[in-house]
Simulated scan of single mutants.
Amino acid sequence: MTAGIFVVWWPTAWVAQRMTERHGGRAGQGVVQFSWSEALQGCPPWMRNTAYGLFIYTFINFFVSFGMGLTGAGTGDALGRMRMFSGLWLLFYGLAFAMMYSTLRTPSLIGQRSCSAGHAVRRGDNFCGQCGQPMPPQ
């Protein structure tokens, strides 16, 4: 299960990098701001809420399991370790699925925004930074 996370997250990290490039993340063009709400905007509401719920579940599960191990309740217990990591597995696999699903339904998330002259334009800019042409609304 753990090794599979790396297989799943390499393409997911590539998609995340493409999203930040679309939002002006190239070197020298300002601060990169990655937003899960924007990355998951192509998901149905139930999937987006489930992804946020996985964040909460993983946080609680990890610290409860870690606390049980420190108090001696789960010391040396393989099932206790399995429980602790199962939340992390759920989070990584669930977010990778949701992010890829969102990209599949909304391909513009990874597309480069450009002006009519072909210059790359950051998200939220109303004018091209190189030629000054106005940008159409998003």
Rank of each mutant, 00 (worst) to 15 (best):
V8K: 04
W9H: 14
W10R: 08
P11H: 08
A13R: 11
W14L: 15
W14P: 00
A16W: 09
R18N: 04
T20N: 10
E21H: 13
G25V: 05
R26E: 05
R26D: 03
G28Q: 13
G30E: 09
G30F: 01
V31G: 02
V31M: 13
V32C: 02
V32H: 00
Q33C: 07
Q33Y: 11
F34L: 03
S37I: 14
S37M: 14
E38D: 13
E38T: 08
A39N: 02
L40H: 02
L40Q: 10
L40Y: 03
Q41M: 06
Q41A: 05
P44F: 06
W46F: 02
N49P: 00
T50A: 14
T50L: 11
A51S: 15
A51R: 02
Y52N: 09
G53L: 10
L54E: 04
F55W: 07
F55P: 00
T58W: 01
T58V: 08
F59C: 05
N61F: 00
N61D: 12
F62W: 09
F62H: 05
F63D: 02
S65R: 00
M68G: 01
M68E: 09
G69L: 10
G69K: 05
G69S: 03
L70V: 01
T71H: 07
T71K: 01
T71A: 09
G72H: 04
G76K: 07
D77T: 03
A78C: 03
G80F: 01
R81H: 13
R83S: 13
S86N: 13
S86E: 08
L90V: 06
L90C: 06
L91V: 13
F92Q: 05
Y93Q: 06
G94W: 03
A96K: 08
A98L: 02
M99A: 15
M100C: 11
Y101H: 06
T103L: 12
L104W: 14
R105I: 09
T106A: 13
T106D: 05
P107M: 12
S108R: 13
S108L: 04
L109P: 03
L109G: 04
Q112L: 03
R113W: 00
R113N: 06
R113K: 12
S114K: 06
S114P: 00
C115Q: 10
S116D: 08
A117I: 08
